[in-house]
Design a protein around this nucleic acid. Structure first.
Lengths: 196, 196
DNA sequence: GTCTATAGGAAGATAGAC
DNA sequence: GTCTATCTTCCTATAGAC
């Protein structure tokens, strides 16, 4: 195999781990399977990472940053408030529909982090970043338009984060795209009422 | 060890598995750990269950039925609509607060079921039963009072299920009981508006 | 039905040549 | 840095005595 600086190999192995985990689940993503996915031998893996846990920490950090980017890109301000909410949900929804395995993996890793001693902060970081992303959008809308918020920003942000999360999980289990849309319509109307 | 009919042993092992999994996570609940928790030898385990997967199927079924019971008991109709919603959330919330590990385990097992070939129906069954529980309460309220539903029953049920699920997960990750209550107030007001 | 003992395999991690 | 080969541990599952 072609030689490569450790830093680059680490990235490659992190990506291979994400691919493997998204496809087969965290439990089946053994160090051997990940090394094979990356096309290197097992020793290369342990040359780059002290342990499997060190790799998983890298995976969680990378995937959290990616997920937050997905949310942030969905949450761009648009022409009207209603359009912002609707288009935001639509953009996020498309990502869920097109990459269900990636979202499944995100849930799996959240639970891994909550169970594994010393990893809890990674789970909390993920959910705090979601909350921040929502809060910032709301603040931004709050300033740029003349919105009256009927609830505090932090409450609204947490509500949005929870609804998004719950609906995503519900879709991953039950499928049924049309139900997703119907519920979203209801939520969208609710948001509009909350920030009239 | 005291002798016991197989059926009873199966129940005991299922309970021991739930205890072990809730405490240590699904990944660390090995057949040895579960047998030890039940106070029997490993062979007794395999005398009662053909495989570990057979046990997990039993665990998922038992825990789903238990979770649905928790939801159903929380969702009893009360004096007024607002009180029904508020007391329902409060009762459910108390269960989450007092048994966080059990709810964590429920999420873990949902994902296990979605990943494991042949187990997907167990995850879907769980979420369908939640939806049914919410739908039945809504129908019941719809008949007993003179409520006007602004959205279809199925949509409202799915919305409630998703919000509950998302908020629960959010609490398991971030804690912060007061935030939970603030968001719930918002949701409660929303429900009241939807069924005015 | 329950036990001890063990088969058989897969996991994470390491040794040492290149 | 990368490889093959191996160590050690732990897993699920079975065998066979009681």
């Amino acid at each position: 195999m072609a030689r490569m600086p450790s830093a680059r190999r680490r990235e490659q192995l992190t990506e291979a781990a994400i691919t493997t985990m998204a496809r087969d689940g965290v439990a089946k993503a053994t160090t051997r399977a990940i090394a094979a996915e990356a096309g290197v031998s097992l020793s290369v893996f342990h040359y780059c990472f002290d342990s499997k846990q060190a790799l998983i920490e890298s995976v969680i950090t990378a995937l959290t940053d990616h997920s937050v980017t997905v949310v942030r890109e969905a949450l761009r301000p648009r022409a009207t408030l209603e359009e912002t909410v609707r288009a935001g949900f639509a953009a996020y929804w498309e990502h869920v529909r097109d990459h269900p395995d990636e979202h499944m993996l995100t849930y799996e890793l959240t639970q891994y982090a909550l169970r594994e001693p010393g990893f809890g902060h990674l789970a909390r970081r993920q959910y705090e970043l979601y909350g921040t992303a929502y809060s910032e959008l709301i603040e931004q809308l709050h300033r740029s338009r003349d919105l009256q918020l009927r609830v505090p920003v932090s409450v609204l942000a947490r509500y949005l984060a929870a609804v998004t999360d719950g609906l995503t999980l519900n879709y991953l289990v039950l499928g049924d795209e049309s139900a997703w849309n119907d519920v979203l319509d209801t939520v969208t109307a609710h948001i509009a009422a909350l920030v009239a």
